[in-house]
Design a protein around this nucleic acid. Structure first.
Lengths: 92, 92
DNA sequence: CTTGCACGCAAGCGGTTACTTGCCTATTGT
DNA sequence: ACAATAGGCAAGTAACCGCTTGCGTGCAAG
């Protein structure tokens, strides 16, 4: 759970999360093209790849191998636990 | 909202959040003493002070001046918005 | 079997960040 | 008034992080 905050600290990684939130099961190149069009983030392929590895290590992104393609999807379960860490008293 | 992730990325800052979660309205020196006893983080006064400023800037900690004392408390409202960013579909 | 595509690995570089060090201000107590 | 306490400000340093660069691997198509 510690890695979640560090993973989401980088703006580029949050942009990737947003891109995956719009549509799941995206490959690396799909994400690269999307991040160059939607946002003005000049992220190269290797940069996105490294970010995806960080997000995957934090448990926020799950991957699925299919031939030479690797599809990425969100896993929002860890985020729910994040909020409950300091929100034990007030919830409304 | 961007600053929230960067603020919580540092483990020392999360430890401060935990200390404030145990008890609100703590001064700087109270937090320093608590962080030296509870955890094994050798945080100096200036380090904790800087971390508190970051947390305050992120809106996670609210302060209250009283004479020469400055009491710090948690504000967990921003954290609720954090989770809802990517949890629009599943909530249970 | 060769060519191209999707992706992985690893070293290196520049900017950021956490922490220290030193000094300063303001409020309280005697 | 003087000393002590609670906290603030700013510069300097070392480590970390994001990104690049270059090359390597495996799958797929002709």
């Amino acid at each position: 759970m510690t890695d979640i905050f560090e993973a989401l600290a980088a703006p580029a990684r949050r942009a990737i999360m947003d891109a995956l939130h719009q549509r799941d099961d995206q490959t690396l190149f799909e994400l690269v093209g999307r991040l160059m069009n939607d946002h003005d983030l000049p992220l190269t392929r290797q940069a996105v790849s490294q970010h995806l590895h960080v997000l995957e290590g934090a448990g926020l992104v799950i991957t699925r191998r299919e031939g030479r393609y690797k599809y990425h999807s969100l896993d929002t379960q860890p985020l729910s636990a994040v909020t409950r860490r300091w929100n034990t008293k007030e919830t409304s």
